[in-house]
């Protein structure tokens, strides 16, 4: 059961953290139509997170709720990929401020959606029937997210000289973070052993194919990877997640007995 909980929290935290990031565009997008599109992506992700947290709450029992899991866990208890907590801009320290960069948003959504389109499909066969049902619902959503981000990746890559340079820089910045996908965490290993989870490394060749085809169409170079491999899914995060959670959790924590 603990194997299931840790694994579900990993999936849920991924969805919540990226949903929180995508919602930052609401009211600030490059064109009104895109504000609406990214809000839809965010709503899908928050919806996935809620279903997964609810499932965890049921497994944990007691007075656990989706909001306790989202609002009252500490940074090191979050199990999302580090990639997803990064702000929408290039490399800067946690407390440094910069503008929202659409290229960064698109590249991140693309890299993650390409993985989840494969992972949710595989999880439709999970031994946990509730997770399998969530996977079936999420698969439809992520296929659209992949389409949206892929189309934009191609437009930005094969657009103007400026957009090409910018989105290549975003890719160079973010691509190394995808190494974390392929290093199995203890929670993943336990979930695979229990038949609940999927061995992500088996999806790697398909992910490479999706990514390489899109990058070729976008006239972008796949960056070389190596060096530090992030460990967000083991609770060791970047400086950025603390700020994201401090903001997200502030109101709920200021009123621990509040009802909303």
């Amino acid at each position: 059961m603990s194997a299931a909980i840790d694994y579900l929290l990993h999936l849920a935290d991924n969805a919540l953290v990226l949903g929180q990031r995508n919602a930052e565009w609401c009211g600030h997008g490059p064109i009104l139509e895109e504000d609406i599109a990214l809000s839809n992506v965010s709503l899908d992700l928050i919806g996935q997170a809620r279903l997964l947290y609810q499932l965890v709450a049921t497994l944990k029992g007691g007075d656990c709720t989706e909001d306790k899991l989202a609002y009252f866990r500490e940074t090191h208890e979050f199990r999302n990929y580090t990639l997803l907590e990064l702000p929408h801009h290039g490399p800067l320290s946690g407390y440094a401020q910069s503008d929202l960069d659409y290229g960064t948003t698109i590249v991140r959504n693309f890299l993650y959606s390409a993985l989840m389109a494969l992972l949710w499909e595989a999880l439709e066969k999970s031994a946990n029937a509730d997770l399998a049902a969530i996977a079936a619902k999420s698969l439809k959503e992520v296929r659209y997210h992949l389409r949206h981000s892929r189309d934009w990746l191609v437009r930005l890559g094969d657009g103007t000289d400026e957009s090409h340079a910018r989105v290549q820089a975003s890719l160079d910045h973010l691509f190394p973070y995808t190494q974390e996908f392929w290093v199995q965490s203890p929670a993943e290993a336990a979930a695979i052993a229990a038949g609940i989870g999927v061995d992500v490394t088996t999806l790697r060749a398909d992910w490479d194919a999706i990514v390489d085809a899109a990058l070729a169409e976008a006239t972008l170079q796949r960056p070389a990877v190596g060096g530090y491999v992030t460990e967000g899914k083991r609770g060791i995060h970047s400086e950025h997640l603390g700020f994201l959670l401090a903001e997200m959790q502030s109101l709920a924590r200021a009123h621990p007995n509040g009802v909303w």
């Binding site: 009104l32 139509e33 609406i36 599109a37 189309d151």
Partner: peptide
């Protein structure tokens, strides 16, 4: 709505 091309117009129409 406004869109740069037909494929994008379809996606935006779906979202809007």
């Amino acid at each position: 709505l406004h869109a740069a091309d037909a494929a994008q117009a379809l996606e935006m129409a779906r979202d809007v």
